[in-house]
Write a protein that binds this DNA or RNA. Structure first.
Lengths: 336, 336
DNA sequence: ATGAAAGCGCTAACAC
DNA sequence: GTGTTAGCGCTTTCAT
């Protein structure tokens, strides 16, 4: 059996309170006593039982992270960054995969919220509706990454990037390369990023003098498979394949889209250009190298992790944490 | 404040024991009482405090997962699979990134072990020495994925794949494509997989009549950057670039190696062939598509997760869990 | 400077 | 069928 504080106390010939004091280094203790306790702890390989600590203090030093798909490099990269920062302060991540399913997301979220298992929650690109988000946060503040602040509540802190700007860059880029007709593969209507990216793209296209009604639009989840299928649909719908610019609103689906194009025997970058979004590390090595927009995922992870830290250590109230919009920038390569 | 079992009891007009009974659905209760309790729980949004439960029962329904780098798709894929299976049984993952650092790995591991924070531990591709592994497991059984069983202890269950076989396949494949000279970029001496893969490669090469002493060997961590550097070293050391087969013992480093080759302006697949290992999803889309060996990562994840489940639910003692070696198979593409 | 003791929220053995 | 209660391991107030 694991040694308890009692065992240490007995071994050191002191009370359990004293042991607790040396663990937390809080009270002035005589060096001799302190040393005796330290020795006893070492000898017994003592570690405080975290469950008892948490029960008593109502703090767990754990942060729940809900992610649509940890195998998606875009998300795993954010998680890595968050872990990097939280680990330094002795926090652990409790990771849950929602598999892009809203019901799972909500179930995980509310179970976290009410069970005392974590100090706070980070939702990465949650798929639930604004209404659900709002309800979940009602009695329990948390943090949301990579999703715009489309609802007003002081109980949620949003960290995301400027998708509207990013996708206007895409339209411009196509324009500069002489593309004449356009398509967009974006996410589901329920995904705010999907709508903002589409909107930013269409608006800029109109600015540039194009008829946004002629833009072919396909929607799917931001996955390889859906990107592939959506591209097939576009290829089927298209009449005139002359300088067609396809904006795929996530790199992962862009990979699928590129495969669909290649499978048709078409060359990418001439009459059909593919533009991704997110700038996932591997995209630069694809064939052709994917032109895309950089979402500052490292910064988002850093930003949220630091705010979480401020919040759980109670240096800051949630109402003093400010949502942040980070920028986005073009990454030119060979697919456009 | 969160509602406690006391609140529910008061609200339903029963004792806390009764509430506990309906939570766990263990005792026969009169339907009326049961319903009253259920209503009270719903009304108060009651959820048992998991810390109190864990303190009492010594079970957390959490499994610690230590991974070298969650942003590495090979690892994140395994984690995803593990989560998928454990989540169904109401277990959560507590994820920690060791960043390939042995000290962090050991620190995380022993803190998990002694703090009661998790029911068991899964180490994915741990970098610590056999000795450390053995010591850590001495009083606390756990599971190791993607590392061969090079030490005998009934306290560790290993799930890995047949690297010796896999890398002999690589040698054969090079041979079949007419390659005449060879190099190998493998992992550090301290990484068992790295040694086994090198060994399997060299042994088969000898079988095939080649002089294994002439094989150029470079070592680095299994990362993009190290793959890149090692390849540069090889390119520097090589005299005669005629049908050189380079076995890079992980896909991730193979990506780096390919970039190094391309940067030199050399074509891959003719006079220089690159062979990866692991078959990471994206490898098929690289330029050229990477020839590699499939490590059954999904199966490894599944296998451990199920064993962990058997173990933590005490249907099985650790000594009844058997280490498993899964197979490996060639994936032919265009880089060889 | 050190210790006694209450109590965090829960489970389960035992009593009724 | 339902309730009483001890106690899991710890923190912290209050006393000495």
């Amino acid at each position: 059996m694991r040694a308890t504080i009692k065992d240490v106390a007995k071994n050191a010939g002191v009370s359990i309170a004293t042991v607790s004091y040396v663990i937390h280094n809080k009270k002035e203790l005589s060096p001799t006593v302190k040393q005796r306790v330290i020795d006893a702890m070492a000898q017994l390989h003592y570690r405080p039982n975290v469950n008892a600590q948490s029960l008593k203090t109502n703090r767990t030093n754990k942060v729940g992270v809900i992610v649509p798909d940890i195998a998606n490099p875009f998300f795993s990269n954010i998680v890595k960054k968050i872990d990097e920062i939280l680990q330094k302060k002795n926090f652990q991540l409790v990771l849950c995969n929602s598999n892009y399913q809203i019901e799972r997301e909500i179930a995980i979220c509310s179970s976290f919220i009410q069970s005392g298992g974590v100090d706070t929650l980070i939702l990465i690109a949650p798929r639930m509706t604004d209404k659900s988000l709002y309800e979940q946060s009602r009695d329990y503040p948390f943090f949301v990454v990579d999703r715009p602040e489309t609802i007003k509540t002081k109980n949620i802190v949003f960290v995301y990037s400027d998708n509207y700007l990013g996708s206007s860059l895409v339209a411009e880029n196509f324009f500069n390369h002489g593309y004449k007709s356009f398509a967009c593969i974006t996410g589901l209507e329920s995904v705010p990023n999907a709508n903002t990216r589409l909107e930013g793209f269409l608006d800029k296209l109109m600015d540039l003098g194009f008829d946004s009604n002629k833009v072919i639009i396909e929607r799917g989840e931001f996955t390889f498979e859906d990107g592939f299928k959506c591209m097939q649909n576009i290829l089927r719908r298209i009449e005139n394949m002359k300088k067609l610019g396809v904006f795929v609103c996530s790199d992962i689906s862009a990979w699928g889209a590129m495969e669909a194009v290649k499978e048709m025997g078409l060359a990418i970058g001439e009459n059909i250009g593919i533009h991704g979004y997110d700038n996932i590390f591997m995209s630069q090595f694809f064939n052709p190298a994917l032109t895309t927009v950089k979402t500052p995922s490292d910064e988002m992870g850093e930003e949220v992790a630091n705010m979480v830290l401020d919040y759980v250590t109670k240096q800051k109230k949630i109402t003093d944490c400010h949502s942040r919009i980070l920028s986005a920038s073009l990454v030119e390569r060979n697919s456009v």
